[in-house]
Design a protein around this nucleic acid. Sequence first.
RNA 1: GUGGCUAUGGUGUAGUGGUAGCACAACACCCUGUGGAGGUGUUUGCACGGGUUCAAAUCCCGUUAGUCACCCCA
Length: 423
Amino acid sequence: MAKPKFQRPTGTHDILPQNQGYYDKIYNTIKSVVGFYDFEKIDTPILEDFNLFIRSIGESTDIVEKEMFTLKTKGKDYLALRPEGTVPIMRAYIENGFVSLSQPVRLWYFGPFFRYEKPQAGRFRQFHQFGMEIIGESDPIVDVQSILIMYKILQELGIKQLVVKINSIGDDKCRPQYRKDLVKYLRSKKNSLCGDCQKRMKNNPLRVLDCKNEKCQNILIEAPQSVDYLCEECKKHLKDTLEYLDELKIPYSLESKLVRGLDYYTKNVFEIESTLTGTVLAGGGRYDNLAKALGGGEISACGVAGGIERIINEMKEIKSKPMLKDVPDIFFTQIGPLAKKKSLPILEELRKAGLKVGESFGKSGLKEQLGKASRLGVKVVIILGQKEAINGMILIRNMKTSKQVEVKEEEIVKELKKTLKEN
RNA sequence: GUGGCUAUGGUGUAGUGGUAGCACAACACCCUGUGGAGGUGUUUGCACGGGUUCAAAUCCCGUUAGUCACCCCA
């Protein structure tokens, strides 16, 4: 590397032209799928009140404890770069009075998010997520719709080897008892747990469940499982969810140790994983307590979010093609100063007529210009030379047949359309 | 926050202590009037800072950055 004076902050990326096609393809795929399911797009600010996230995500979660980008404004507001999408949307739902709309409200989003973490595969400080939230509905069928929609989007992007991992972590009625028994069990084995887990036991005991330390995993084999503690309501919710999934023939596995790091989840939590690479491409769940935590009412909701960069990695892995750049059909060449002067207005005329035209005005040699046209693979080249410019004529060259005709300047649009049609 | 690995033109690479090379790309000219070519030429580099040595791209230390793993997560 030279020694650039400035470089990107750690964990951020320039999305280069050659990668834009992936973002475009994902965006368009989402748009077409969620459009069918009647979702509407929402964009929330990238900056939010810092406390919004503490209230909702949980004070002792990693996201809040160490992963937020925060800043103080000149007016002394304490703000944070949004680390995830669900909480701002719930805030917007409450703030904009969406309770009075017909429920549920279905919203989707696509945009950048920020977490102060050490970058590694599929994880950056600025990354992109998209997601869907269904707010104001408690029926498990919308949980399944969330899963289905995400599943279909991934499939339409070419990612077919997928499995849904699902669990229920209960609600306010049944989770406290489970937590109590789990802590009791863990405490009895405390000395065999890893250091991290001893800490988690206090702050966030459910998190011990997905510790990857082998010793901890061995201890957890005997640990109480959340599904055994579910109250009638949560149990039915999970059972219905699984039945709907069976009906859709979506492969899933019940993962008693799946928890997820955000405090606002209740009942169902799930992840969609690539069986090819083992990467979690999307995750989500139900969050019936979030609205209340933010000062709204009792509002049931459910959502799912996907990581764009992880999906792009996966697409590259399986050679799923990005969206292709659309190339012009026509290329404009000019020779001589008079032709050059006339070329801009003519080009404008062509643009207005809806034709896509390439050019290389900086070049003067016809050979070079034709060469570029040829490389682009255009079908038709317009040649405006000195002689033609004086006579008010213009040449249309068919690149396939190498035949060219001379037409009047004012008939250029008509003649071009005719030539394109013939090809 | 912890640990492993890596760092040579724009890109991809060779160079294991002794003259920094190759390919592609870019640009210019051959060439202001007809096709992806060719020829000729030009530009661009050892991440940064220290140390060892007669001599460092090469060995050592530090920094920075990248990457991978842990933590956590999309």
